[in-house]
């Protein structure tokens, strides 16, 4: 075959130079002289605001939501995920959906983006006592689950985040049990509030926010909303999830936002909106979504099933 490459080999930057440039840039970022460019999923989508969710709420500044993250795959400090987002192998991405269903299948990112995507403003409350209000772009998880046809034995849904220890150095350490695993009861997963998000503030998800696709369950503490999902399993038994395994007396499977069930080390009565000095907001039961989700837990002792 004829050589059609018009670029002479001498023009190609040697890898060592490329790498040293990268290190140099990293040092600049670390020294605060340069802000790191945001690494985002390249997948694009069209979404229209759905006025039924959070219309008119005051949004948290995007820079806070993009620079204050818990994503241990990219580092244990709040600022690590934004700095290390380039480590995520974002393309190609697909999500395997399997288990107790009639039509298990692998969804490519292109297929996922064909679901009806809309923008919704949700409150987000972290178990650590901070919160934000932001517009997510995504589609209802139930649309995807309906396509694979869960069987009557599908009582729970398990979400697994990316596991790539060759790319993500943190996954070579026993920081948490990898892959990060979360779960919902099937009725919670089928609830219209439960989203699979692909965007935030109208743009494709940034790596640190769980690109290219993540869960958003606004009435539960943030750790339930698994990031960078690669596998969804329908199962019969309540699954063991990452933080429950890590500290069962601190984190429960349900993890519904509840001001009356304190964390062992802090009260959950109030929360600090990102960017604010004071814990200026009173935390609400089910993060204020009680009118839509309280019926899911009728008759349950929320202190026992925290």
């Amino acid at each position: 075959m004829k050589n059609i490459n018009p670029i002479p080999a001498s023009w190609v930057t040697p890898e060592s130079v490329y790498l040293s440039r990268r290190q140099w840039l990293k040092a600049m970022v670390a020294a605060g002289l340069l802000s790191s460019p945001t690494v985002r999923a390249a997948y694009t989508f069209n979404s229209q605001p759905n006025p039924a969710y959070g219309r008119g709420w005051k949004l948290t500044e995007a820079k806070h939501v993009l620079n204050y993250n818990n994503f241990y795959e990219l580092g244990p400090k709040k600022t690590d995920p934004a700095e290390n987002a380039h480590l995520l192998p974002l393309e190609p991405w697909s999500v395997r959906v399997e288990g107790e269903c009639e039509r298990p299948r692998t969804f490519t990112m292109e297929a996922l983006l064909r679901f009806p995507i809309e923008q919704r403003i949700y409150r987000f409350r972290c178990v650590e006592g901070w919160s934000f209000v932001a517009p997510w772009d995504g589609f209802e998880l139930r649309r995807l689950l309906q396509q694979v046809r869960p069987t009557s034995r599908a009582k729970f849904v398990v979400f697994e985040s990316i596991y790539a220890p060759d790319r993500l150095p943190m996954q070579r350490l026993p920081l948490l049990s990898w892959p990060y695993t979360e779960g919902l009861r099937i009725d919670e997963a089928m609830h219209p509030l439960t989203l699979l998000a692909v965007g935030l503030y109208g743009r494709p998800l940034a790596g640190q926010n769980g690109a290219p696709i993540r869960l958003v369950v606004p009435w539960k503490y943030g750790f339930k909303s698994a990031k960078s999902i690669v596998r969804i399993r329908l199962v019969e038994k309540m699954p063991m999830t990452t933080w429950v395994k890590e500290a069962p007396h601190e984190y429960g499977f349900y993890a519904n936002v509840n001001p009356d069930v304190p964390h062992p080390r802090w009260s959950q009565q109030r929360e600090r909106p990102l960017g604010s000095w004071f814990k200026s907001r009173k935390t609400e039961l089910f993060n204020g979504y009680g009118d839509q989700v309280a019926h899911l837990y009728r008759g349950m002792d929320l202190r026992k099933w925290f």
Partner: peptide, 14 residues
């Protein structure tokens, strides 16, 4: 100095 130049950030109290 950091608060003055970069702003207090997402969680200044932390």
């Amino acid at each position: 100095w950091t608060f003055y130049h970069n702003g207090p950030g997402p969680n200044p109290v932390e």
